[in-house]
Amino acid sequence: MSPQLVTLLLSWPEFKNPGRLWTLALLPLLVIAYFLALRLKGRTGIRYTNTAVLGAILPKQSQWRRHLAVAMSLCSLVALSMAWARPMGLERVPRERATVVVVIDSSQSMMATDVKPNRLDAAKTEAKDFINTLPDGFNVAVVSLSGSSSVRMPPSIDRAATLRAIDGIQLQDGTAIGDAIESSLSAIKQAPLGNDKKPAPGLVVMLSDGTNTTGADVAGAAAKAKSQKVPVYTIAYGKQTGYVDLDGKRERVPPDPKLLQQVSQATGGKSWSADSAGELKDVYKDVKSQVGYEEVRKERTAQYALYALAFATVAALGAVSMAARWP
């Protein structure tokens, strides 16, 4: 039996008609009846004293085959009962619509050259490659993260304009992660409604390399994103040994993965770390697998019916093997 099958059967799903699970009450009754039948059979004496003749007439019964057939029959009953109750499960399907806000840190620490040619230019290149891989129907917005975060491009399906907005991001002072989250939430509200007059789900992909230095409370902004059901996926970018020279003074600018991880966890997103352009490219591939799909509740009746058929087939083969006289 495959590990996936074992996991599925051991994990109790939700059901559309849980009242139909009353059939599972038959299971212990059948088990008791089976053991009683075994005990009664053991007490029954044989009518033939000549065991040699009896052995020639009747084939030996394999105990393990009998037990296997019964066990598989009971498993089939369990799977059929669950299928009748219409089990529900989560399935990952491609998103049809979404609004993705790409947040790029533009603070002075992004001039560090630990990532060639520097953090900001490398981040822009990989962010543009990421945007080009998103489905054409996705709206994409761009927010620059600095001491005065702003929406550089409102949600749009115009990829050329979005890429130009990324190219226009320049270095600025300060790092206000909380402000960037709030700007992202504002950008999501600007996205056009769908044909059903409902907004597309919003997601934020934030790349930053520094510690928050100013602006709104990060925890408060993350709580606001959670209340609006907007997950924030964070990328801590740069090496711990990174540094910049400001006003004739060399300052270390290591990324702060702990803070970014707290943001992603608080909003239901996911966090990554990358200290090179190559790693950032791989991270964006993971990000795409997250934002490009959604979990949808679907009925799994057919799946459980298939398992019931598999158990019943094994039980039938066991019964046939006991009835047949093999040469």
Results as ranks from 00 to 15, higher is better:
3 P>K: 09
291 V>R: 05
175 T>L: 15
322 M>W: 01
130 F>Y: 14
213 T>Y: 01
134 L>I: 05
133 T>A: 12
155 P>N: 10
175 T>A: 14
189 K>T: 03
40 L>A: 13
18 P>M: 00
135 P>G: 13
181 I>S: 07
229 K>E: 10
281 K>S: 15
226 K>R: 14
262 Q>G: 08
90 L>V: 06
87 P>Q: 09
47 R>D: 07
59 P>H: 13
30 L>V: 08
32 I>Y: 04
147 G>E: 12
33 A>F: 01
277 A>L: 06
152 R>D: 12
286 D>F: 02
270 K>C: 00
63 Q>K: 15
210 G>D: 11
315 A>V: 07
302 A>W: 11
193 L>D: 02
152 R>T: 01
262 Q>K: 09
152 R>H: 03
127 A>R: 07
19 G>R: 10
225 A>S: 07
232 V>Q: 07
57 I>E: 11
278 G>H: 01
54 L>F: 13
234 T>P: 02
141 A>E: 05
151 V>Y: 03
220 G>A: 12
160 A>S: 14
33 A>T: 01
161 A>V: 05
292 G>P: 05
219 A>I: 04
75 C>P: 02
160 A>N: 13
302 A>I: 11
24 L>V: 03
324 A>R: 14
13 P>K: 08
169 I>Y: 04
140 V>P: 00
303 Q>Y: 02
154 P>K: 09
267 T>R: 05
224 K>G: 04
81 S>K: 01
186 S>V: 07
223 A>R: 13
172 Q>C: 01
31 V>S: 05
68 L>V: 15
223 A>S: 12
187 A>S: 15
304 Y>N: 09
87 P>N: 10
72 M>I: 08
221 A>Q: 00
122 A>Q: 09
130 F>C: 06
2 S>W: 09
210 G>M: 11
238 G>A: 02
124 K>R: 06
173 D>E: 15
173 D>N: 15
172 Q>N: 13
11 S>P: 02
